[in-house]
Structures are given as C-alpha cells and as structure tokens.
Amino acid sequence: MELRSALIESVKEIFTSFSFPVNFYEEREKIQLLSTEQVNILIGFNNALKGNIVFGMSNTTALQVVSNMMGGMKIAELDLVAKSGLGELANMITGTTFGRIQTFGLIDITPPTLAIGSNMFLSISRTKSYQLVFQTNLTDLIVSFGLE
C-alpha cells in the first residue's frame, strides 16, 4: 500500500477506535506554504522514507478527541496531559500507517511536536505537499504530508 492510502486508512481506523468517526472526502495538492488549523501535531520521519506529516484540527475538535481518548472525561483546555494525548494519537496513526506500507527498510519517526496558534501557516516540504481532508462531526481534520 502506498503512503496516501495507508494514511487515510489509519486515520479512519484510529479516530474511529476512539468513537470519533471521520470520513475522507478531499485531497489537495499544494505547493509549499499551506494554511492550517489552530492545533497541529508534527511528526517527522527518516530512513526508508523521509518527510513530515502534520495533523491539523481546530481547538474544539482537539478537545473532543482528547475527551474521547480519556473515556469521555470533560476537557476544558489543552494542558500538558491533553497535549500528550494528542501526541500519542499522532504516534499511533503514523506507526499504523508505516506498518501498512511496503518499503525497503525501517522508517524512524520523531517525537510528536504540537504547534498551537492562530492564523497559522506551515511548510513541510520545499517541493510539493498534499493535504487529506476528513469530515468529522465538528470541524474538518486536515492531514498534510510531504516527502523528499
């Protein structure tokens, strides 16, 4: 399976496992600078494949996802525990994705980094990046990836 399909499958599987269904509905091919969401989780990778993946979502969606991950506990703000949960979510999705694709070696991933702000732009590749857009019950989930 190639990266794009594996990523779509893994995002759906992991989010659904936390009772947060998502539906893939659009792919955007972007050059260089992308506008993105308030909450972004970055994971880089190297060795058999080299690049970056960013999971972008609104604050509302992030709070709901963390709440679901914690069994429905009310989450009022993205504190360190909540951020750790989101980082783990990104780890799970990325790990599952790389388990699905065929490569000629191992792929090592970086620890997840959260970038939270407003009016955010990001660039994860000097060449081309792709955005996979998922519909949720709240706001869209945007998964950006770029390969070198």
């Binding site: 880089g44 750790s84 997840p112 939270i116 732009f121």
Partner: peptide, 19 residues
C-alpha cells in the same frame, strides 16, 4: 539523522513536545 525542516508561522504560536 535529521528529518526535513518544517516551518510554522502564526500568531501566539506555542510549541510543545511532550515527554
């Protein structure tokens, strides 16, 4: 080994790498 650099630009940008 390094992964490719990522650029984030934003207002009130706050970065956290847990654990």
């Amino acid at each position: 080994r390094l992964t490719p650099p990522s650029i984030f630009v934003g207002e009130s940008l706050e970065l956290t790498t847990p654990n």
